[in-house]
Write a protein that binds this DNA or RNA. Structure first.
Lengths: 224, 224
DNA sequence: GAGTCGAAGTTAACGTCGTAAACATAATAC
DNA sequence: GTATTATGTTTACGACGTTAACTTCGACTC
């Protein structure tokens, strides 16, 4: 007796409920973060009974993980867009090493950009997977979900490889640097979102982010 | 009819319910993180009715903020202990500059140490303050709570000042570096806790943390 | 095409949570 | 010794996640 005006199939069967729920839940996360992803609200917004969701998700946590994946996808895409826009137009990168450095900076800037533009999604993208109550502690089936899961991480790692192959960073220093780079940029993002840094003007943020990126990159490339 | 075997005063009036609730809630957070701090459970564990908590806290969010403060205190104390133990025994710090650098490293190591030793509390220490539903958006009265609130942050800032006064870091580079330092160490902590870095051996973590700290400090002090 | 069968929905119900309102009791002030 | 006030209690409400049992639709066989 619900879904009288369905855009889908018959009015009873939705046709694509899974994706509709993910979309609704993602909207919830967009303003409100992960804790705003409530299963009943998503179902309500799609016009379906709460328990219908259980045909497509094992529960609220599963739905939240789908949202998390959306967030990770958005983050990675913003980073790629930022790097592509910043590196492709051959803006004064005299040599390959400088280009690699610019790419790294652009990726970091994209990271921050996404976190500030979509704080709710960003937080959802890094929310903890719900305790697998079966005690097994394993994250369950996430095979191709993992393709996007920490793609941002891999993007940074590849950029760091570029720093090495162009001779900008000593190879023996490479190990562990993706952690350092990711930590710096992620820490900055959460600091800006809900850390002690209250409200900063956009330009303050930008100088701050630029400074942090410069410091880390200098740490990577400096000789001494 | 509750609290038959109270350690406090009469059996009806508790005597120090506020602190008892904070303690119980902190225990909840210790294993389970911020989302495990449920008001009813804390009251239950103290042996008091759920609504009794409302005589001492405005609600669940307020209780959570008290736990958050406990977490921040623990973090700051671990950092101070780490720095004190590492710097006081005059271990080969040839000059003041080197000592300042060592202190900064020790503070960072303490930060990571606490995050790994008390993951639940650490997460609680950085949980978002609950949306002040009155729309004012202000965090409310936290006057002396703020003394501990981001003390970890101030510790890092002071250590960075030491880096400048000893001439190890150019003064014009100082601005914003507490953000960078904090971001690096905080990002590393969350990365270790629930990021893509699954289970690492303690020594792997330590080399990782040491590497990250070295990179950032090199970024601060390097000449080029 | 009529009949069956599983996938994808529904309603009803349970236990838990946060919270408000009204009531009860104990400590304190006069 | 009584009135007041701080601090508990009981009761109740609505929202949430989740389970169980029922219903409806679409697809596949004969």
């Amino acid at each position: 007796m619900m879904r009288t005006e369905g855009t889908g199939k018959s009015g009873y069967h939705h046709g694509d409920l899974r994706n509709a729920l993910i979309e609704a839940a993602t909207d919830l996360a967009r303003d409100g973060g992960p804790e705003a992803v409530v299963l009943r609200a998503a179902a309500r917004s799609v016009g379906v009974s709460p328990t219908a969701a259980y045909r497509h998700f094992t529960g609220q946590g599963d739905l939240l993980m789908a949202v998390k994946e959306q967030g990770q996808r958005g983050l990675a895409e913003t980073m790629e867009r930022s790097a592509a826009g910043d590196g492709a137009e051959g803006d004064g990168a005299r040599d390959a090493g400088e280009a690699a450095e610019e790419r790294l900076k652009a990726l970091g800037a994209g990271y921050i950009e996404f976190a500030l533009a979509e704080p709710g999604l960003f937080r959802a993208a890094f929310c903890r997977p719900p305790e697998a109550a079966d005690g097994s502690g394993d994250p369950g089936p996430q095979e191709d979900s993992a393709r996007w899961m920490y793609r941002s991480f891999r993007l940074l790692a590849e950029a760091l490889d570029g720093l090495v192959t162009t001779g900008r960073m000593p190879a023996e220093r490479r190990s562990g640097t993706e952690i350092t780079a990711w930590a710096a940029v992620h820490g900055l993002a959460v600091l800006l979102l809900d850390g002690p840094l209250g409200r900063l003007s956009p330009e303050q943020r930008d100088t701050l982010a630029a400074g942090a990126l410069d410091t880390v990159i200098r740490g990577f490339t400096a000789s001494e």
